[in-house]
Design a protein around this nucleic acid. Sequence first.
DNA 1: ATAATAGTCTACTGTTATTGTCAAGTATTG
DNA 2: CAATACTTGACAATAACAGTAGACTATTAT
Lengths: 141, 141
Amino acid sequence: MLRLSTKGQYGVRAMFELAKNYEKGPLTIKEIAARQGVSISYLEQLLNKLRKSKLIKSQKGPGGGYVINKKPEEISVGLILSSLEGPVAIAQCLGPSAKGCKRVEGCVTRLLWKSLGEKIEDFLDTINLNDLLKEETKLLR
Amino acid sequence: MLRLSTKGQYGVRAMFELAKNYEKGPLTIKEIAARQGVSISYLEQLLNKLRKSKLIKSQKGPGGGYVINKKPEEISVGLILSSLEGPVAIAQCLGPSAKGCKRVEGCVTRLLWKSLGEKIEDFLDTINLNDLLKEETKLLR
DNA sequence: ATAATAGTCTACTGTTATTGTCAAGTATTG
DNA sequence: CAATACTTGACAATAACAGTAGACTATTAT
C-alpha cells in the first residue's frame, strides 16, 4: 500500500544526479537516462515538470543539459515530489478535487488521513538533496 | 501522490462501525454497507480479508453478522490496512517482490523510501480503534 | 424439517492511472 | 549550418483498482 509512482522515484534520482554534478556544469538528459537505465523520452517529461517548477534549468545546444537551479540544501524531496505528482492526498476527500463525501464534518477517518498526510509531508520537507549527498558519502566510506 | 485505495479506507471505516457496535452484538454486512453507502458485494471482499486475519469474526444465520475479535484498543489502523493491502511499500525495491533494481547496495533513495515507510507504519501502528472512538465523541461534543 | 437469514467464495468486467514510446519541431552553439 | 539537445503533444500497452454477479454453505427460529 501507499506506493509512490516511478515518476516520483526517477525524478528524485535524477535530481540527485544533478545535485552531484552541479558544480561541474550541465548534465545531458542522455547521461542521466543512461545512469538510471530509464528511457530518454520518459525522463524528458519529468525534467520538464521540474523545470517548470524552477527546480532545475536547462541549456540548449552543444555542451548544454540540465543543472539544478538552487543549492542542494534548498531543494527538499518534498518539493521534488510535489512538482511531479502534486500534493500528498491519502484520500480523495483531502485532495484538490474533494467531492462526494458527505460526511466531511465529524468524519473521524478523514482526520486520520489528514494527519497522516501531514506527517508524511513534514518528513519529506525536512530532507533535502544535500542530506542525500552526505548520506551517500557515508555509505561509500 | 501516495493515495490510499478505497479498499483501505472502506475497511477502516467498517472496522470503526464494528468497534462502535461491538458490545451490542453482531452487525450485518447489509447494515454496514448501508451506513457507508458501499455495495454489499464489494464490502464482502474486505470483510473476508479482515476475517482471515482474525481481526473480526462472523456468525451466520439470523441474528448473525460481524463482530470485532479483539478489544478496540488492540486493533491498530496499521493492522487493518496491512490485512487489506499488504505492508507499506513506497517503492518496489522494498516490497515483498523486490526485483530488478540492481543498485540495492549504496542506493540512497532506497534508504529514503525505507525510512519514510517506517515512519508511516509507526504512525499507523500507534493509532487504534479506541483512539478513533474517543476522537469521535470529542467531535460530537 | 424447512424457510428465512446471513455469510462464503470465485470469476468476471469496466475504468482509470501508470508507464512508457514516438515523431515532428524548436533553440543554441561551435 | 550542422550538430547537439531540449520541447511538445499525441498515442498505446499494461496493470491496478473498483465494483458486480451468481452460485453456494451454514445457522437459527418456527
